[in-house]
Design a protein around this nucleic acid. Sequence first.
DNA 1: GATAGAAAAATAGGATCCAATATACAATCA
DNA 2: TGATTGTATATTGGATCCTATTTTTCTATC
Lengths: 222, 222
Amino acid sequence: MKFEAVDVRQTASAADIVYETLRKAIISGELAEGAALRQDQIARMFNTSRIPVREALTRLEQHGLATSQRYRGTIVAGLSIVEIEEIFEFRALIEAEVMRLAVPDLDEVTLETARRHCLEFDRETDPGRWSDINRRFHYTLYEASHRPYYLQTVGAALDRIDRYLRAQLTFTNGLMRAGREHEAILAACIAGDAERASRLTRDHVLDAGRSLVAFLREHRGA
Amino acid sequence: MKFEAVDVRQTASAADIVYETLRKAIISGELAEGAALRQDQIARMFNTSRIPVREALTRLEQHGLATSQRYRGTIVAGLSIVEIEEIFEFRALIEAEVMRLAVPDLDEVTLETARRHCLEFDRETDPGRWSDINRRFHYTLYEASHRPYYLQTVGAALDRIDRYLRAQLTFTNGLMRAGREHEAILAACIAGDAERASRLTRDHVLDAGRSLVAFLREHRGA
DNA sequence: GATAGAAAAATAGGATCCAATATACAATCA
DNA sequence: TGATTGTATATTGGATCCTATTTTTCTATC
């Protein structure tokens, strides 16, 4: 009889589950910005006491996904257009650098995986999934840079703007430019041209940012 | 009888105080990496229950200053040399960009403040204070960039490596190069040469990183 | 003496209770 | 009617208690 060892240790605490669930709900936009996150209500939803809920809320706050005021409670954080612009600019800087560093270490398997995500992105019709596939495509390439700290900061930045991107993609039914840009980046990676891949990544992010900001100016005035 | 209104609202919760105190102790190196952060013990130290302590610990963990394992407790986080190298490289990238963006917006008052910090840095004899003054000098200039998100990530990065820098500065009784480099950066700022200020900042950070890594290789083997 | 297992102690996670504060609402007075 | 004050309610912050898990210690056995 052949068998494998299974790690039976419980790794997910109640706080972990509440945190992950709320995090996904916030970055997907399911929980609108400004929405109140009531400890009692959330605790009832998850069949727990308020203690693990409070831990989840402080984690969200530390990541900038929620803001709290003493004795007044916690709400889903929102970003101004200026803040969104800054985050895109930041992403462009980091992701361009990560892409440059990744190119020399890309292997066949990784490139093939990236190509699959690229096709998947083009084929996907559900706007709610574009964001995830997009992230997987880029991260597949980025990981070859072996810069976990950079990627962590990029991930945090992405978490903050994801909902606005999703809103835009859902409304405009997708910007087809992204697909072409992915192909161009992938081509530069295959060619081993780090500078070009980096520059294209930078432009790709800045383009997305400009497009999103234009969309938001239209749809929330100012 | 003349009197003024005083904002009597309590802004600092017990969790805030515990968090700030522990944070400072960790980044200063007062709490060594790997040291156990026992909820009970800390609660007694602050005359509170474990609840605010737990909140402080989760905040520390989210910022990478502590790591916790379920049912096993929380310890002060440490960084490998590779991780330290990555953080310096990251800082160099961000801080060079922030410096470039800041130069056009620097005014007389800001430059004068920076100059004061620069002198203060040279005059200070207590190695424990160099790190703080250094941070103030750079931040005075950086803030003119109006990039709060960038600065937040730089702050988080600095928090993680501060204790290693302090250890080095205390041991070697300071690297005098930093003082000259500060003056050169300041001169470029005064001259309004954004590119030069940016390049010097980048080199300044990378130099400090290389120097620190060399020191650490010496003092913890590997 | 070393080792395995059981009991005990230590410690973290979570539930429930109380206190502090904020908000909503009703009563009062001009 | 409109502003203001007092009161009730809702909600968060913190304390205490209980439970789950880990770690340590003790003991029996070889």
